[in-house]
């Protein structure tokens, strides 16, 4: 499934139109992660934020925006890092089919 998709060197989709939940799950599995309902909350949040503001926040703003929308518990850094151990901002964007955020290196 993933082999047919155009992706950049970090595995981010080049074309968001190729995104589907199945693609997100496959990309996560490739990174050794099984997506749960808690992951999806964050992934859908990311997509909605991007669609509304056409803007990608940095990690601190990202956590703050989640806190505002989904509650303090889900905006806590430790909670987000438990979901996405290699970096919540980067990997939530990756599985959301969005570009790599400018603040990620």
């Amino acid at each position: 499934m993933l082999a047919e998709l155009a992706r950049d060197e970090d595995g981010f989709l080049i074309n968001r139109n190729q995104w589907s939940e199945g693609v997100a799950e496959a990309m996560a599995l490739e990174d050794g992660l099984t997506l749960t309902a808690s992951h999806w909350d964050i992934i859908y949040f990311m997509q909605a934020y991007y669609d509304e503001f056409n803007h990608q926040p940095n990690a601190r703003l990202f956590a703050r925006a989640i806190k505002k929308k989904l509650g303090a518990e889900k905006g806590a850094s430790i909670y987000l890092y438990k979901l996405f151990p290699d970096g919540p901002l980067k990997y939530a964007n990756k599985y959301a089919g969005l570009p790599i955020p400018p603040s990620c290196i």
Partner: peptide, 14 residues
């Protein structure tokens, strides 16, 4: 770059 989307986020950060 259009800055308006960024200005639109101001209320998100209170």
């Amino acid at each position: 770059k259009n800055m308006m989307p960024v200005l639109d986020t101001l209320p998100v950060y209170d």
